[in-house]
Nucleic acid binder design. Structure first.
Lengths: 329, 329
DNA sequence: CGTTTTCAGGAAAACGTTTTCCAAAAATTC
DNA sequence: GAATTTTTGGAAAACGTTTTCCTGAAAACG
């Protein structure tokens, strides 16, 4: 392996000079810089990031933590979009992403997680969908050993930022459009998780709308499960005008139930996943750009790593109506 | 940061002794081992994998290379399954997975890729869906700088293994079952990519079956694209008895076309993705376990890294019939 | 022209491990 | 009980960088 040492010898300069060229230090003359670059080229030298990390104590390694409980279904395209967004941005910024899946994160020993991240010299964490109120995550974030960005969860402090869309507003807006258009008054609202951050936020939005328009809303919790939503629809849809779900996956469950029951009710979703297009119906929903959310999370993490303080970032959302043809063409 | 040095001091032994305990060397007495372990515990010492990698010249880092051209559609769940399978197995074996996306891998400078992997001290590559016949991959694999496992592509040598199902057999089997059951004679076969390895293999299978049963097959290339398959179906399905596609995504395209044309033709797919269940029809297909394939690829890579020689691994497949309800319940 | 300031570049310690080699102690042999 | 072998554990070099500190030369100053 050709090292900085070989380059130095070839260029007739000191090791430290080569390092300075590599890291774009200012105090190297153009002439010397050129000599070094020629030597690098000739020898095909590639800097060793391991050695660099050891010496500088900066690894630039981030972990993307995904809770596989939540994304258990293989049709769920959201985690993949997080991964793509995060990895591409990380590459752009010269950082490394280690993707990590945690099943049953609540149960898992946080100490074990911390040891793992520490042994891997990971400097920053992007945590998806787990709020600081989960005891485990709280301990992890509070260990003070890492900078963190929480996606879809609150909890800002000096070392922690939070990033998400305005869930309350988005739910309010999409539901309003949907309700007015479909002229519905009695609504079945299938919420997400009890005590889940985004779920509660979306619930606020729907309540706000109900107050404003004087709607009757009947609320049940679907745990973001397609099957659960299907059951709830079976049970409660009959005497309602319409169904609003806190996720597209649940909306699909609801639609399937409606087909099975052979009744028609308009359905409104949330997330804007393209799987929706395959369910064959058209539907109002909120589109989130998960890939940019993850990319922004990486950028934010890099900001935190430069010593900046944590903050809350609100990402934009979009109201869309998914159609059969959107996906295909 | 607490280092091996601190542990040594605390335990009253030499640094090298601590290292030996850490790495389970045999020539350490039970007594000394215990002393060291106590010190490790007391100090909360976590070994630094960066330093270890530098010193031992073994990083245990693998790259999972995904061609995003091929998996451009966000509904495509296959890459995610590769990622999950690979990461979990890697963790089990104490290796690290760096996921990398390459778009337009053909065009991309291989030298740049090599530099990247080299600077990251990556020891092994898992390359999905790109055969050694792609010039770029050939150069990469032949650089001799990495051990590689090719998923769904041929090319075994001392440093390279290949892993895939028996595509010819699988296509033959599923098509036979499908054809006999649906009593079809004139078939539209929508193949994958021209010169693509798996595509050619599957084509062999269908040809074999056609010979055996005396079927008439009309072959077109769909490039694994849903839209393309839809167009081809529009164009050619009318005077055929049935449609067999080299992938489920194309099968979905074909089904959509049939709906649009308002005619019925049985459709046969390949891959067994669960998205199929959302298209709302039932269909014969071949189920591949992409997650285990990736896991096996990681295992194989670790074998290669231990100095074993490359080989070809055939993974099992399964014939299934996807139904609407399979997904839901 | 002597003095001070700025600048380029070198020497060497440091990062936290692994690993080789060696010495002392213990165990075994005759 | 001496000679040999085996076992245990230590000293120190090495891995490839970064970074601090320092020196000598050039530039700027009065």
């Amino acid at each position: 392996m050709v090292s900085i040492r070989d380059v130095a010898k070839r260029a007739g300069v000191a090791i430290s000079t080569v390092s300075k060229v590599l890291n774009h230090y200012p105090n190297v003359s153009a002439e010397t810089r050129e000599k070094v670059n020629v030597a690098i080229e000739e020898l095909g030298f590639v800097p060793n990031s391991i050695a660099s990390a050891l010496s500088s104590k900066k690894t630039g390694r981030l972990a993307l933590v995904l809770d596989m409980d939540k994304h258990a279904q293989s049709v769920d395209e959201i985690p993949m979009q997080y991964i793509v967004g995060a990895i591409n941005k990380a590459k752009e910024l010269g950082l490394d992403i280690i993707t990590v899946f945690f099943t049953m994160i609540q149960e898992m020993s946080v100490d074990e997680m911390i040891r793992y991240f520490q042994s891997q010299s990971i400097e920053g964490l992007i945590i998806c969908g787990l709020s600081k109120h989960d005891k485990a995550i709280y301990k992890l974030v509070k260990s003070g050993k890492f900078k963190s960005v929480l996606i879809d969860a609150p909890g800002v402090d000096a070392n922690t930022s939070s990033i998400h869309i305005d869930n309350t507003k988005a739910q309010y807006e999409v539901a309003k459009k949907f309700v007015l258009e479909s002229e519905s008054r009695k609504i079945l609202y299938i919420a997400g998780k009890k005590n889940g951050y985004v779920s509660e936020e979306r619930l606020k939005g729907i309540r706000q709308l109900a107050d404003e328009l004087g709607l009757t809303i009947f609320i049940r919790t679907g745990n973001f499960s397609e099957l659960e939503a299907r059951k709830l629809t079976m049970q409660y849809a009959k005497n309602k005008d319409a169904i609003i779900c806190a996720s597209d996956l649940m909306a699909i469950g609801a639609m399937k139930a409606l087909i099975d029951m052979d009744i028609y009710r308009p359905v409104c979703g949330f997330d804007g996943v393209s799987l929706m297009g395959y369910a064959g119906k058209q539907m109002h929903t909120v589109k989130q750009d998960f890939s940019s959310i993850a990319a922004s999370a990486v950028e934010e993490l890099s900001r935190l790593m430069e010593g900046e303080s944590g903050r809350e970032i609100i990402m934009p959302h979009e109201l869309i109506r998914i159609k059969y043809l959107d996906v295909i063409s």
